[in-house]
């Protein structure tokens, strides 16, 4: 298999608990209007949420495929309870579908069939990349904390061993997973008795320090950055590393505009500066960050592109 030459935009899975109709309408719009080539679909955070979207799944998949998108089914990122294990098996053991593995238990079910390694899989180095590829991975999405130097080393190897490399370039950053649901905890409930309270926060729940400074974002069992990752200024460098998949993580507003801005840069219709202005106008109500890329604190925004 040869490595893809030209980079493509991909759309990561919706990570939040949106109303099912909103979820459906979002994907129908993506199918019809968005310049992404791959769409990751499925519940990554909480097995309890998954059935909420099932009624619309077939329609969404059909429409996305008719729109020329490749659909990849993402698995859960953490597997503990019996419900988790059943959902993991249902997705990962399905033959004839593209699967993104987000937990090692997925690999047990996939049994070497071609698949994608998701950003929760800790593919940090050459040996991991070789192992995953030998085990059937055709595409690997790096952990969001991977610095530029790591991307560079892996990009070189990816080309040599014939696996595609993907990184998240936009959207809130997944920082941690837990067995405990922090949405439920905020409402004095437990994961089992949550009554799906996470549905009130369509881009997660902001967590502020006691001094009032915005800090993190709660999304059920996941803790995300408060800031919104934006690597538009680094796009050329990332592509030069050999990264071929550029992942945009969806939010409740501005996702189509975000895709347009990145697509504009990829197709030389926009300069990075022009795209940055568009992203500024369509962003969620949080500042941009790109610190991880520069091996700096992840919340920071490095505006001059300096690796010092």
């Amino acid at each position: 298999m040869t490595n893809q030459i030209s980079p493509i935009l991909t759309l990561g899975p919706v990570l939040y608990n949106w109303p099912a109709e909103t979820w459906r309408d979002f994907y129908l719009k993506i199918a019809d209007e968005a310049a992404v080539e791959k769409v990751y679909l499925g519940e990554v955070i909480c097995s309890k949420r998954a059935p909420l979207f099932d009624p619309h799944l077939e329609q969404v998949v059909t429409r996305l495929e008719n729109g020329g998108k490749e659909v990849i089914f993402s698995t859960l990122s953490e597997t503990t309870s019996n419900i988790d294990r059943k959902l993991m098996k249902k997705i990962a053991a399905s033959e004839g579908f593209n699967i993104e593995a987000n937990d090692v238990s997925a690999l047990w079910h996939i049994k070497g069939r071609p698949h994608t390694i998701g950003p929760h899989m800790n593919a940090y180095n050459e040996e991991s990349m070789k192992f995953f590829t030998t085990n059937g991975a055709t595409n690997i999405c790096l952990p969001p904390e991977m610095p530029a130097v790591g991307m560079k080393n892996l990009g070189k190897l990816a080309g040599e061993i014939g696996v595609d490399l993907e990184v998240q370039v936009y959207g809130r950053i997944g920082l941690a997973l837990s067995a405990r649901c922090y949405h439920a905890r905020t409402w004095d409930r437990t994961k089992d008795s949550c009554k799906f309270i996470c549905d009130i926060d369509c881009d997660g729940m902001d967590l502020h320090t006691l001094e009032g400074k915005p800090f993190l974002t709660i999304n059920g069992i996941q803790t995300q950055s408060y800031t919104c990752l934006n690597l538009i200024n680094e796009l050329d460098e990332i592509i030069a590393c050999g990264v071929t998949g550029l992942r945009i993580s969806p939010h409740s507003t501005g996702t189509l505009e975000t895709i347009e801005a990145f697509d504009g840069v990829l197709n030389k219709k926009l300069s990075a500066e022009e795209a940055a202005v568009k992203l500024e106008a369509s962003r969620i109500n949080a500042p941009f960050s790109n610190g991880f890329y520069y091996q700096k604190p992840g919340f920071e925004w490095i505006s001059n592109g300096s690796h010092d």
Binding site: H120, L177, F292, G298
Partner: peptide, 21 residues
């Protein structure tokens, strides 16, 4: 620790030093 082990980048988000790496 409250987070799933090996899957926490909170320290790196604040300090630039990574728990995993």
């Amino acid at each position: 620790g409250m987070m799933a082990e090996g899957r926490c980048a909170l320290t790196n988000y604040v300090t630039g030093l990574s728990t995993n790496m």
